[in-house]
Design a protein around this nucleic acid. Structure first.
Lengths: 317, 317
DNA sequence: ATTCATCAATAGGTTGAGGCTATTGGATCT
DNA sequence: AGATCCAATAGCCTCAACCTATTGATGAAT
């Protein structure tokens, strides 16, 4: 069976019914007859293969799936409206919108600089940052919900995906202060072979990279809690449900009482890249990448920053 | 004329044409005849009141509006697909998604705590943070693109909007190091009457709050650059295009070489609230608010706490 | 210059999705 | 039991969206 093709009109119908919880009132609000509405809703349920409403001849109520659809339908409908007005605005000269996906601390200290530089060169362009959890290492590129993203390889191979390295930083070990490791000034991977690790709930390749399976010489990993975001990850570590590797910059963004970060001797670093889709030909995305590249090349990462102070951050254009 | 009602099917048609730049090929990809497609696209253009394609008998190309619509249409279509699968998942027991809107530094140091606590109590719920610029002080609540948001009053009055204070913090003055004000350890509003201010590109009430027009005793404001985001704001300040008031926590999140933050004697503080829609009855949003409230009450942040210690910050609603 | 090839637009016919009214049938309240 | 409320069903009708065939415009080739 093929994926059902939603129809916004039907979605509007559904929202009306879900809000009124009464077919008759909803129908009159929509200026159609009640039977037509009943039929449409029934077709919608059939198409989705999911009951959305629990009907009795006395009352109508939403199922759990109905609740979800109500929220999402409203969102989709207002997004649709926005598409219309954005298109109309574009015709009268307004610029566009760029959605920047990221995970955890994005490009660390470089983030605001890149954003500032880009916005400086593109006034009138809306830029929106969106965070993504571990389950999508492409930070929204995969499903098209972001135009450009700060990512950390390895990503799944895909023809439509292009990326460029912005910087590389070491990975460190995050442990709770209660751990006997907390006092060490450095550890090796071997030293933590037997420790339980907090595992990222993510595609295998990416998950394994953060578990550093490559550096364990076949030694199996003891798994602790599964987590989907950085916050959950540190929460788990604080609760002593495991330890984890993370990029060094995390320390500056997520440090909190009870956590220690320890340099690791023999683990490959993490790369922070800027990524985009090659199949969309998005002018704004390209220029964002351009800005990021320039800043990475000449603006450098935190410790290089000082050399950047005398430089008035020359507009890039 | 009423707002045009998009039809996703037509949007798919448009995407096909825009990708192929050829009506015949697009039509065969869509398994319909070329004339039908021509008609539909023409109707779409007419409905939007915007030419999307430049046709000659030899070639087809996109207008600027067409480019925008292509990007947005793709996004909308994949959002629609996601709605379908989310609904279907919901029927088989998976939790939901919560979108948290915010501006600049959200709830400052409290943000990760709230997120961590919420995710801890609701494993399986996807939480996505979305940043918004100054133009929407409701951080996505107004247009339904966020379920719950960290906001800074004053917001426009609206029946569907509810909020609760999480904490209050002083406002400070941000100036470039080059300014003669930079060395002062404190300023009064009167002292900066004649300085040009960076103005937030936002609804009047909000813009005026941040210009502190209330505290200027009728003294008019000299306007500097207009900005839409915090990044732009500080960029403008660095370039000496004006100075600005901002909440104290900004200092800890956006500090960068060249910027100074100065306490202000006689200016009301800024409130950070959690806000949500009352007309959606969103269970997850309610519980997020609950989590935030608990943390604000019992887990307050050290350095901010002092500013509201005397005030038990009675929940509103 | 004339012909040919290509491709979008137009013309005109057909069909089914989505609308309507009238009615049924199940449930609750009196 | 009867009255009332409300969603579902039945059966008809209309028009939007599709089809095929053709036109007309434009660039390339002879």
């Amino acid at each position: 069976m093929q994926q059902p093709q939603l129809d916004l009109r039907v979605l509007r119908y559904f929202v009306a019914v879900a809000e009124e919880l009464h077919f008759g009132r909803a129908a009159s609000r929509l200026h159609i007859a009640q039977p037509s509405l009943s039929v449409q809703i029934r077709k919608l349920e059939h198409e989705l293969g999911v009951p959305l409403l629990i009907r009795s001849s006395r009352s109508v109520e939403l199922t759990d799936a109905g609740e979800v659809l109500l929220t999402e339908a409203r969102r989709l409908l207002s997004a649709a409206k926005r598409v219309v007005s954005m298109t109309q605005e574009a015709a009268s000269g307004v610029k566009g919108t760029l959605i920047v996906g990221f995970q955890s601390n994005a490009a660390a200290e470089m983030t605001p600089r890149i954003l500032a530089a880009f916005k400086n060169n593109h006034p009138g362009v809306h830029v929106q940052m969106r965070s993504y959890g571990f389950s999508d290492p492409t930070a929204g590129l995969a499903d098209g919900s972001a135009d450009v993203a700060f990512v950390r390889p390895p990503l799944p191979e895909a023809g439509w995906l292009a990326m460029e390295t912005l910087f590389v930083e070491p990975r460190v070990l995050a442990v709770s202060n209660g751990s006997h490791l907390a006092k060490l000034s450095e550890v090796s991977v071997e030293q933590v072979h037997d420790q339980p690790f907090v595992a990222r709930n993510a595609p295998e390749k990416w998950r394994d990279f953060w578990l550093a399976t490559q550096s364990r010489e076949g030694h199996p990993v003891r798994l602790g809690t599964q987590v989907s975001t950085v916050d959950e990850c540190f929460e788990a570590i604080l609760n002593e449900r495991g330890i984890a590797f993370t990029q060094a910059s995390t320390q500056r963004f997520y440090d909190r009482p009870g956590l220690s970060f320890i340099p690791v001797k023999d683990i490959p670093p993490s790369t922070l890249s800027i990524a985009w889709r090659t199949d969309t030909n998005d002018e704004l995305a390209r220029e964002f990448v351009e800005t990021a590249r320039t800043l990475a090349t000449f603006g450098g990462i935190p410790n290089v920053t000082s050399s950047f102070i005398g430089d008035p951050m020359s507009p890039i254009v």
